[in-house]
Design a protein around this nucleic acid. Structure first.
Length: 483
RNA sequence: UCCCGAAUAGCUCAGUUGGUUAGAGCAUCUGACUGUUAAUCAGAGGGUCACUGGUUCAAGUCCAGUUUCGGGAGCCA
């Protein structure tokens, strides 16, 4: 019975046909006892519902409050007012759900993002979060479309894993053993995980990459897209304890192919959203422009949101090696004026301030850095041949985005069995436990490469939002697991 | 985890060198108006000044600790 309704987005694009339609939605504001701004989440633009005098009794009028849900039957007519071309002249109106005006937290005014973060269950009903989450949806859809169209197989890698060799940070433990001290113990007093649900110690995944590689060794190209968990005590605007990650993995590919795919991928996603969510991008663009007005001159960004997205779509990313990056930093005015807090020399991991300088000051566009020192990168990355003495590098690549920092991290994988095993031993990775992984190098090993793209960081970049907690529905961060 | 900052009405914020009864706009409620666009006009209600302790004749204001939030750093996507 509810399916004969018309969506507001559709109605707003239609002519004043004089046809009778049914709409349902939530009241944003009620003006003049006569004009209802109704929203159903299909767009930020509200439908103006006009109730003529005498249509509704006083008791019903009082129930039309911000947040209340309505079913309205009416005629689509040309609007006499200025803010819209068509409006709905109501013939019948039913309040589906009341919303106590004294208790409903959202007002028809601008709220701070901090306040709305505490009301995450209701913030979808605001323009900003409406736009953000419609865009998030579009991005998720576009990701599947991109890889599907290229013939990649969507592989669901496990959420629960016994592998603790991924080396990507602290993990959340998964167990059914009691926490009150009565868990079975070994002779040395440590917990006996043989008695646990899986017969071993298990955790939530920090990456699907290693399993992804197994898939790539059969399907040639796979991608994963799922939740990832890191138990790091990170309190920043770009880290979550539970986040989503896309990890493509391609056989018969090297670091060049990897960079090409990542760059094409990012550009595709931006283009898709600019085409399919133009209204939402416009809204966020204006919102950001308003925000910027209240900032001091030197804190304002050079580009508006749309300008930034268009620029990224139309200009190739800068590609430099780690060694070149270090040289640029050493030659920079910032370095000479001792502006950097951290030391710059070959062998260091690039700090935020260094990445920001390269991306925001020097190149002013996304930058792909390749060829990092082996000592600061993971065991599975392919050792580059013919390196200078003492400067062994790996075929790693990080994509650094303005305002976000690292948005992609990837590499060509070490496909040579002996070199991989030697590297694992060097880095104290338990080789026996990883024999399933090493089997790919024993049986028909091929050059292959892949990367991880942080989904929420991508949403941040496309929406121009600045806090990662505002682009995921219910953020999980240290000390916060509400809703 | 470290550094910096903040916490006053439902929301956003003001509150002077410590000194009467802590204010404004918006929201809410009551009434008026009825082609409005975050409607407008008039009136009303609304406060554990985050918490705990201290200094003082006197603390929203000063000090210490705690909690929470924000920004930055590290870890990373």
């Amino acid at each position: 019975m509810f399916n004969n309704r018309t969506k507001i987005k559709h109605l707003l694009q239609s002519e004043p046909t004089g046809n009778e339609v049914i709409v349902m939605g939530w009241v944003r504001t009620f003006r003049n006892n006569q004009f209802i701004a109704l929203n159903d989440g299909s767009t930020n633009n509200n439908l103006q519902v006009v109730t003529e005098l005498g249509l509704l009794d006083d008791a019903t009028l009082k129930r039309i409050t911000t947040g209340a849900s309505l079913k309205v039957t009416g005629i689509i007519v040309a609007s006499q007012g200025k803010g819209q071309t068509v409006e709905l002249k109501a013939t019948t109106l039913e309040v589906l759900g009341d919303s106590d005006a004294e208790k409903y937290p959202l007002q028809p005014k601008k709220h701070s993002l901090e306040f709305l973060r505490e009301k995450a269950h209701l913030r979808f009903r605001t323009n900003t979060f409406g736009s953000v989450f419609r865009i998030r949806h579009s991005l998720a859809y576009a990701i599947h479309k991109f890889y599907n169209d290229k013939g990649f197989v969507y592989l669901h890698t496990p959420i629960i894993t016994a592998s603790d060799a991924e080396g990507a940070g602290e993990m959340f433990r998964v167990t059914t053993l009691p926490m009150d001290g009565t868990a079975p113990k070994n002779e040395d007093g440590s917990i006996n995980y043989k008695e646990d649900f899986f017969g071993k110690s298990t955790n939530l995944t920090v990456s699907g990459q290693l399993e992804g590689e197994l898939g790539a060794m059969a399907f040639s190209e796979i991608y994963t897209f799922g939740p990832t968990f890191r138990a790091e005590n990170s309190n920043t605007t770009r880290h979550l304890a539970e986040f989503w990650m896309i990890e493509p993995e391609m056989a018969f590919s090297d670091i060049e192919d990897n960079m090409n795919l990542a760059e094409e991928f990012i550009r595709y996603l931006i283009k898709y959203v600019m085409e399919h969510n133009a209204d939402d991008i416009d809204f966020l663009d204006q919102r950001l422009a308003e925000e910027e007005k209240s900032l001091p001159q030197d804190k304002r960004s050079e580009f508006g949101l749309k300008e930034k997205l268009e620029f990224v779509v139309n200009n190739p990313f800068e590609r430099i090696t780690y060694t070149e990056a270090i040289q640029i930093l050493l030659d920079s005015p910032a370095y000479k004026k001792k502006k950097f807090q951290y030391e710059v020399k070959w062998g260091i991991d690039l700090q935020s301030e260094h990445e920001r300088y390269l991306v925001e000051k020097h190149f002013k566009k996304p930058v792909i850095v390749t060829g990092y020192p082996a000592a600061i990168k993971a065991f599975y990355m392919r050792l580059n041949d013919n390196c200078e003495e003492g400067k062994q590098t790996v075929a790693a690549m990080d994509i650094l985005a303005p305002g976000i920092g690292e948005i992609v991290g990837g590499s060509q994988r070490e496909e040579r069995y002996e070199k991989l095993v030697a590297r694992m031993q060097e880095m104290h990775i338990p080789v026996e436990e990883m024999s399933w992984y090493l089997d790919t190098r024993r049986f028909g090993s091929v050059p292959h490469a892949g990367f991880g793209l942080g989904f929420e960081r991508m949403v941040l970049f496309v929406t121009g939002m600045t806090n990662i907690r505002d682009v995921i529905a219910f953020a999980r961060t240290p000390n916060n697991c509400e809703f």
